[in-house]
Design a protein around this nucleic acid. Structure first.
Lengths: 231, 231
DNA sequence: ACCTGAACACCGTTCAAGT
DNA sequence: ACCTGAACACCGTTCAAGT
């Protein structure tokens, strides 16, 4: 048989190539299309070939997460704690924005991956060196929660692009059943002169909430707040 | 054939019975065990029998959510907005606490269910009648996000009960790689005199964050904050 | 020793055959 | 008209057979 330039030969399978292909596949076709079988086909190999580089699907998902999380900027230098944390969280948000599957996958893990642990450790370091007590830092980590990684924690995924006519009709119908909701949605729509798609400025909402939390935390730090009575 | 007391006869299949069984199954064995086939077996019917009462699995999940969300207390009367919202969110948290699968399922839906929409509408009503502007209310709904339904938005599920010896060993190992994390975790552990299981008081953390947000929002209301310049 | 096809135990859902 | 067994197109993973 002639030594033809088959993909496997020119581009041997590796954990790195598997992860990069899996991420590209998830970005393009959604996380549900990342099955071992489908991914193998994408790579031009038999499904079982993947199992030499990843133990199982969970390890594949962990690896995908670590690639994404590792792309978050390192802490900035010479900033007050609040600005430094703010910038880093916004960087995390940017890192995750191109990988809409990532937040769901991260949340589904029962055990944090190394890159996530390293990120959390670094974040805690920023808080401590910013003058927050160990006690306050602990509660702040809980309060920021998944927002640390840039999750918006909104309740619903942005509704896919909708037919304007249909959405106008349903909007009218909804206004009858959910008058308060319609009132707020109408206001938001009006301001952005969109039809009824209820397009919110996600970046604004994210920063609004983040600042609400950071400002509250800074106030607690200034008053030397503690979750336990001083002795 | 004798008229025997078979389950199907005494207890005919209905949408309600399907939903209640599905919820019980999810509570007991986890949401992954709620498959159409498994659920059917639990009910003593053939899988296809379910499809007469629910269109498909998505509709089943929507139904399960609505049952849980409908159990949240209605708004209290005669309270200031902040207290009323606080109580209701804590009630939502209680309602969801017995259904650990619910938050993940709610987040996985692309379209909100009727009960969730009704809850959100009611919450918006509470904010508006509490004196928040439509503009502020809009941003507050984003800021509270899934917390409105009692989600803690923590990053990782509580680690399942761990072997103390093993966890002590890994804790020492982790302390080397993640020193800041270990410092905060050790402090939290010490205070609760637990071993190294890192048992946090989830209720305290939830209320801490909720109050951080509500206090910040009340301050914005008092200063008549607006996301746009007054004209 | 390495690789992989077939198999196992699942899934949600369709569809045609049976009553 | 109603019900349901078999089938379809998947899944992650095991395992034994082939090289």
């Amino acid at each position: 048989m002639v030594e033809r330039a088959d993909g496997a030969r020119r581009n041997p399978l590796s954990r790195d190539r598997i992860l990069r292909t899996a991420i590209a596949l998830a970005n393009q076709s959604g996380i549900d299309s990342v099955s071992m079988r489908n991914l193998a086909q994408e790579l031009g190999v038999v499904p079982m070939a993947l199992y030499k580089h990843v133990a199982n699907k969970d390890e594949l998902l962990d690896g995908m997460i670590d690639v994404v999380v590792s792309a978050i900027d390192p802490p900035g230098e010479g900033l007050d704690w609040s600005t430094a944390v703010r910038r880093r969280i916004l960087s995390a948000r940017q890192a995750l924005l191109g990988h809409p599957w990532a937040s769901r996958v991260i949340e589904s893990r029962t055990t944090p991956t190394p890159a996530v642990l390293a990120y959390m450790d670094s974040m805690i370091g920023m808080l401590l060196s910013g003058g927050l007590s160990v006690d306050l830092t602990h509660h702040v980590m809980h309060a920021l929660g998944s927002r640390l990684l840039g999750f918006s924690q909104e309740l619903f995924a942005p509704p896919a692009a909708v037919d304007p006519d249909a959405s106008a009709a349903t909007a009218r119908a909804l206004a009858g059943t959910y008058p308060h909701l319609a009132k707020v949605a109408a206001r938001a729509d009006h301001d952005e002169q969109s039809a009824v798609g209820s397009r919110c400025d996600d970046q604004f909402e994210f920063e609004f909430t983040l600042d609400l939390l950071l400002d509250g935390i800074e106030a607690l730090r200034l008053q030397q707040w503690s979750s336990r009575p001083a002795r």
